[in-house]
Nucleic acid binder design. Structure first.
Lengths: 99, 99
DNA sequence: TTATAATATTAAATAATTTTAAAGTTAGTA
DNA sequence: TACTAACTTTAAAATTATTTAATATTATAA
């Protein structure tokens, strides 16, 4: 495995930070196999609409999520399947199960 | 792939947070294939001894690193090979290369 | 012993992130 | 056009994380 170069490291850190929040990680898990509207995610997380929107835009900014508007609703989904691998590795560590 | 359960999620978040800092991530990369003393890591990172020590103990607290004392030196190393997979997935995302 | 090298801990100061609350958009509907 | 639903943005307040600086510990060496 190659080392992460120093320039890439700060990107990687930002990527990690974008995941390292309970609301964001649970949203990401939720979106693993489906897209969802902001409202749906507000319901799911129990957070304020504003907070959810801010978390979503942070994940979008770091290229984890993308959004698609349909009328007055906005659907969010995971862009890069590699992020699923990352979540998978996390699962593996924290559930002590292989996958 | 299984979902991360809600109880495990907060552990996973703490694990991610433990990685999501430039000093910590670069230390982790450095330790990927070798153990090292605190002093070595102070040199490598260019940070103060105290700061490095605090970062190391945070990573130790979350089970990412372990330490081994030898005389008056302390060697740090990565505990769980799964963390390497995680770093590997990160590499993959941020270098746009497969591995 | 005393001194020193290597590391850890603590507390205060600073910086970054998150939440809350209040407006502000955008798109559909009466 | 005016209204409402779905969402975003902004700014201030609250919280959490990091750095700094000083002190403490642990083990070896003089």
């Amino acid at each position: 495995m190659e080392k992460i170069k120093i320039e890439e490291l700060s990107l990687a850190v930002q990527g990690l930070k974008a995941l390292a929040h309970p609301a964001r990680l649970s949203i990401l898990c939720f979106l693993e196999d489906q897209k969802a509207t902001v409202n749906k995610l507000v319901e799911f997380t129990g957070m304020s609409q504003s907070a959810v929107s801010q978390h979503l835009s942070k994940m979008k900014a770091f290229g984890i999520l993308k959004d698609d508007r349909d009328g007055n609703q906005v659907y969010y989904s995971v862009t890069n399947p590699e992020f699923k691998k990352l979540i998978s590795a996390l699962c593996c560590i924290y559930t002590k199960k292989s996958n």
